[in-house]
Amino acid sequence: MSELLKFHFTPADKARPEEENLHAQVSTDVTDVIKALQEQFPGAVTDVSVYAGEHTVFVARENLLQVCTALKETLGFTYLVDLAGVDRFQEDAPRYEVYYCFVNLKAGKRLRIKVRVEEDDAVVPSITGLFKAADWNERECFDMLGIRFKGHPDLRRMYMPEDFEYYPQRKEFPLLGIPGSLPLPPRTPEGELTLDPFAAARSGSPVKSYQEPAANDEK
């Protein structure tokens, strides 16, 4: 980090009181699955919260791979719908959170799992070995929040240039970005594309902007 960032924020409103969710469906009621997980891995499920008729299972980081393996192979949750990170920005709790949404297509059930990690140790085991769909989602989460996924085969940035040194969805990152952190192209054709965001992908020296980049077999 070349510059220390600070977030000036307004505390959020209090959560709304629990009320009956008329839209909650049978598919979100997964008490039997949670019970099976608690019996199979004692201590892995740290907390279960219910909000608006939907269950959320909090899993310890050490047990994430075991839990996901069991979900996929014995409990039938073969479809990973979504995976993303959350910056909670609270001082008294682990700052980052990664959530996983699974679907059991045969039983028609949905399950949400969350893993919380501290800011100074934001590493989560990668589940790409179990669910290939997690690949790009984990890269996106790494790109936006800086959470590292241990065991990911190709943990590069997803959206931002590969030499970008900030994580834009962290709360302290200013909305309009850091001036000068993202390079613009030169204004003249002869200018050097030294700050090329694709330089790592091309693995070559910068070329003039009016020239074609060399193909891999031309180098």
Partner: peptide, 14 residues
């Protein structure tokens, strides 16, 4: 986007 800007500039220069 900033990433696309480089591609656009390259096309423009060509």
């Amino acid at each position: 986007s900033y990433k696309m800007a480089h591609a656009i500039r390259r096309v423009w220069d060509q």
